[in-house]
């Protein structure tokens, strides 16, 4: 495991910590898309089906359990916690799940490496993760005052994807025969979705302004 992979995972973990901090400590999920969080829960649930059958390392197993547990915890908070659920911007978070789930599943049936249930679901999860941030980006654009925790949460998620790209470049040059086209192309698409957000995040940060996206 190279430094970029480790930093990527830690950034991903930190993004979850930031989001949980907002939800659990401040008791607010304002500006957070439940649609995106539900899609992430679905991503982890379909990708980590191999958790007990395909052991890579203790590190991987522990991280998988953390991501599964936290993603469902976040969804639970936003849907059921009596205080948190009242801060959810339901009217603004209008993106439809099926508009992302159905095309991703169709694509997973068409483009995958093996036609087995586990393999198709794993591929589906890769495609779905690439676009799962979409409802969140739409919601951010509609939000007038994006608070720091929400802005930082999305920034950390984007940074995690960028670091994974660097990790793949290192692996390509250091591991003989290493290639994974489905993951790479999905990863590039996923990182590209953050480009616009990054541009405004850095611009506002440099100007010492509160983060706002043009509508």
């Amino acid at each position: 495991m190279n430094i970029f992979r480790l930093c990527g995972d830690m950034t991903h973990l930190l993004s979850v910590v930031v989001l949980l901090l907002k939800i659990h400590t401040i008791k607010s999920c304002a500006g957070i898309s439940l649609k995106t969080q539900e899609l992430y829960a679905l991503v982890f649930a379909t990708r980590y089906l191999d958790i007990f059958t395909h052991h890579v390392s203790l590190y991987n197993t522990v991280m998988k359990i953390i991501f599964l547990g936290t993603s469902f915890t976040i969804v639970w908070y936003m849907r059921h916690h009596k205080v948190v659920r009242q801060t959810y911007d339901k009217e603004q978070d209008t993106f439809k799940h099926y508009m992302l789930i159905i095309p991703c599943f169709a694509l997973a049936l068409l483009i995958k490496t093996k036609f087995t249930p586990l393999e198709v679901l794993w591929t589906f999860s890769i495609y779905l993760e690439a676009v799962a941030i979409f409802p969140q980006l739409v919601l951010l654009q509609r939000t007038k005052n994006i608070d720091n925790l929400t802005g930082n949460y999305v920034f950390l998620l984007g940074a995690y994807r960028g670091l994974y790209l660097l990790n793949w470049i290192v692996r390509y040059f250091t591991e003989k025969g290493y290639r994974q086209w489905i993951t790479w192309i999905s990863g590039i698409v996923q990182t590209a979705l953050y480009a616009d957000f990054f541009y405004y995040y850095i611009k506002c940060w440099r100007n010492n302004e509160k983060l706002h996206l043009p509508s």
Binding site: R5, D9, H12, D50, H54, V56, S57, N60, M63, K64, F67, T113, K114, E119, W122, Y164, N167, G177, Y178, R179, Q180, W181, I182, T183
Partner: peptide, 10 residues
């Protein structure tokens, strides 16, 4: 190595 074998990432 093919795509199916690389499942060591999260």
């Amino acid at each position: 190595t093919n795509d199916a074998d690389v499942k060591d990432e999260l």
